[in-house]
Design a protein around this nucleic acid. Sequence first.
DNA 1: GACAAATGATACTAAAGTGGTATCATTTGT
DNA 2: ACAAATGATACCACTTTAGTATCATTTGTC
Lengths: 136, 136
Amino acid sequence: MNLINRDTDYAIRALCFIAQHKKERLAVSDLVKALKIPQPFLRKILQKLNKNGLLISYKGQGGGFSLARIPRKILISHLIKIFQGSLRLNECFFKKQRCPETNDCSLKKRVDIIEKHVISELESISIASLMRKGRD
Amino acid sequence: MNLINRDTDYAIRALCFIAQHKKERLAVSDLVKALKIPQPFLRKILQKLNKNGLLISYKGQGGGFSLARIPRKILISHLIKIFQGSLRLNECFFKKQRCPETNDCSLKKRVDIIEKHVISELESISIASLMRKGRD
DNA sequence: GACAAATGATACTAAAGTGGTATCATTTGT
DNA sequence: ACAAATGATACCACTTTAGTATCATTTGTC
């Protein structure tokens, strides 16, 4: 079980790398060299970031990608939603059915509390905060 | 993404049900009636709970299962470990490789903190605490 | 205008995980 | 001896994950 999957992880690395570079347009090939992510896979990820409004793409020769917003406004929670679907940790398997006996979803209530905490923590992590050196 | 999968969920229900019953031996067929879990699947789950020391099994006619320890000592975190493997939310995909640039796993550090919180919360949930009525 | 360098779109694939089913062996109370 | 129970194991369909492959389109440069 992983909170962050490979797509999301690659997306974070790519966004950090783009954010750190003065050049405001980077081609996939530039990123591949630095990040060691298979090129076709990284392309797919960047295309998705573009579709979701986190990157701007430039087609044709000399094209590439640049950030569509400042790093502080790019949140890990958003990336997880894009690449892993919702952030829910607690979809009930028995939506209609009442859980038998007294165990009627006191479990769900407890896990909901955990979920809320995790979500709020993930919403506090931005690309900017991951870039700041010296930050713990 | 779900913190608790179906195996674990069924295990929790089964354990709660057994714990609530005065009869200290319950056969799979008794549980199936009450919990509406497919019998062969539930059997597999109970066998695993037996192997992991949470249930005691009695073979032969009149056999069944009983709790191997008091409900307060059966923790959700333990069940997750049994049915879903480790509780880690944060296995690094790049164990040896250093993450490129300055982004060297400040992400991991942040997620580790979240993980610790989730684990400690799950360790605080026991079968006993799920059975107590009125507990929110 | 031709060409090459870039992204866009889409379809495919292999491996692992999830949620089961099926079968036969063994134990044990009556 | 028999039936009712668990033990062990193998199988299966479906979904998700982590990619690969291919062709179409755009655009700067010569």
